[in-house]
Every structure is written in C-alpha cells, then in structure tokens.
Design a protein around this nucleic acid. Sequence first.
DNA 1: TATACCGGGCTCTGCCATCCCG
DNA 2: CGGGATGGCAGAGCCCGGTATA
Length: 406
Amino acid sequence: MGTRTLPFRKRLCPVSRQHQVIMTWCLKMARRELMQAAGNLLLYSGKYTCLLRLAEHKLHNPLQRRFFCIHVQLIEKQPKENCNLVNRLENMGVDVCMARKRQPGVLKKMITHEKGLTDFLQDKGANKNLVASVISRYPRSITRTHEHLEKKWEIWHGILKSDSEVLKVLERSPESFFRSSNIANLEKNVEFLSSVGLTSKQLARLMVKAPRTFANRMELNQQMVDYLNDLHVGLGGENTTEFVKQIITKNMFLLSQSITRVKANIEFLQTALKLSNRELLLLLQGYGADLLDLCHDYVKLNFRNIKFQLLALGCTDEQVIHFVFRYPPLLYLSPNTFSDKIDCILKSGIHIQQILDKPRVLDVGINTLTTRISRLQDIGYNFQKDGIGLLEFSKTRFEAKFKKLL
DNA sequence: TATACCGGGCTCTGCCATCCCG
DNA sequence: CGGGATGGCAGAGCCCGGTATA
C-alpha cells in the first residue's frame, strides 16, 4: 500500500490536480455514489471537505476507507490560495505566476494590504506599473500595514532626503525595502552605521548602492565591523576607526556580504601575494577593498589563471605577484577576458614586459583596445619605442593625442 | 605640456537555504 | 508544520578626469 500511495502524494499539489486524483481514484472504486460526490466536489470546491466526508460514508470496505482518509487529510492540510486576492492582484497587473513562484504563502493569506500599499506608493509618486512590478517581485510587500510603511518611509526618507530617491531604490530592490518588518532594527542600523563614522552623505550612498545593508539585522552589520576592527588591530594598524570607515566607504557592498567571504578573500590575498601585515593593510586601504565582495572561488580562479598564463609567457612568480599587487582589480578579469586582452595586446607586437609595467591597460575594454591598437598601427605608431601608456587614456585624452600624432 | 599616477564613478539584485516562531 | 525573517550566494569591467611629475 505504501508503494501505491506515493504517486498520489506527489501529485497532490494544485487543487485541480487533487480533485483529479480523487476522481481517478473514485473511478477505480467504481461506486456510483462516490463518483457523484466527487463530481460535486469539483463543482463546489469551496465546500469539498464535507463532500469528501459524505463520500467517505459511502465506503464500506475498511481498507478503502482508510486509504480515502489518508488522501483527505493530505488535501486538507494544504491551505488554498485566496481566489479573491489572486483576482485582485491580477486586476492590478501583478504577475501572479511570478508572485506564486516567489512567495506562494502570501497568496493564501486572508488579510493583506495591497490596496493600502498601492495608495501609499502612488501618493509617493509611483505609477500602477511600478506597484505591480514591486508586488510581483516581492509579494510579501502586501502584508505590510500602512503604519509600517509610514514609519519605514520616514526613516528611509530621513536618509535619502526625497520621495523620488526612496522610490528609485525601492523600485530597483523591493526586497531590500520590504523584507524585514522590524522597524526597531532599522533604527538601530541607522544609529549603528552613523556611530561607525559614516556621514549622512555616505549613509545615503550606502542606502542607494547597497540597500540590503539596512535590512540586515544590526548585529550582522556589527559583526562585519567588529571583524574589520579585529583585523586591523591584528595587523598592527593604527587608527582602527578610520580604517573601518575607509574600507566600508570604498566598498559599499561589503556590509551586504558574508564575513566568511570577506575573510576568505583577505586571507587569500595575503597568502597568494605573500604580503606582510603592513602590505596587506596598504592593499586593503587601496584597490584591495574593491575585491573583497567578490565570490571567493572566482578570486582564486582568476588569480590562478593570471599566474598560469603569465608563467607560460616566461614571467617569474615574483613578477606575477608584483603585477597583481600593483593593480589588484586585475583579479576581476575572468580567464577568458584576461587571455583575450593579453592576446590582443601581444599580437600587435607589444612585449609582455610592457604589460607588466602598465597593468592598467588591462582595465580597458577589449573593443577599445582593439580599435585603438589598430588605429595606432595604421598611422605607424611604434609601441615598442613610444610606449603603450596612451592605450589606457580616457576617450577625450586619447582622441586629442591621436589627432596630434596624425 | 604631456603623461603618469591614482581615486573614484557606474553598480548589486534575485534567488535559495535555514532558522525560528506561532 | 507553514511561513516570515534573515543569511548567504552568484555574477565576472570599463571608463573618466584631477593632480603630480617629468
């Protein structure tokens, strides 16, 4: 029997399917009354429980009854979607399929505040499409009360200074705005982040760039700050408060990353680049901060790739380390991008040593590199003699220089 | 005056897993 | 046990221009 019940269990999800299953089963039972009851069941799905009970009474075989009861219980345990709510959301233009996929539980709720949310957001300048998009992407937004919205908006507005700015961030990341219902925690976060030394302008930037930071529990943000504090003290740095503030303002995404990731990246940088404590601190206060939120595996992968390719081109370990140390953002480059750029540059007769001396040329996009190299070659520019510095110029500077070379 | 050096701008949400509470 | 709250993860560069310096 256990082997027979399993497929039924698996298929018991959507209501219509449940009814189908019962119907199929009823057919198997070949009992007219039961089939009739099951037919009613499809017509009056809202009252299906009592109909099922009615059907149950028609079964006299204890085994059949028991089997039937198990399925009834399974169906009863699954709360149904609130059809009225689903209809209302559909009328509002909400992508209900998307909402169902993201937070199915919300569609089953009897009390929601979609009307209040719509009024509230429209009052702040949102149009219907924006509201529908927000609900589609973060359905739980409709469970927030007017009072909650008012309070949260007030705090966000206090930081971003205008409704349109709050709306812009909310539109970009509804989850950041709506995910937590804990207003006290939000207040604690603002207080904590200010106490770290962030100015109101920096706080606003943080909210625009990494709004999730404000939805974190304050303790989580504190843990990251504590970690950075300990790290700095452990590395023998002075003025720890300034260091922490500097790192956070350099990389606003840091507070929305896990400590594990940040820690792994820092440890990797120190080991891979064979850095002393002092060098590590310098790196972190410079370009290194940018890298800390990168997925750790990619940092490792990209470093291994850079090393592999440069060694193959005859560079030494020391040269590789020095190269990355001078310009750590190179670790952003995926293996393909890195090798494409190196190939493109070397193909034009530029020596690898010239790249080692000017790591920032790899900062330039592959298309820009290709176009510039070919334009310069066309006018007989000698990279070996005249250098590759102009490859990394800004557009205006490059064009000005190019004109003069003609 | 031209180039080197360097900091900073842009941007990073949407999904899944897990915990915890009612 | 369901669902809300929260944590954590993947993703994979390019460009500009101010100031110092040769």
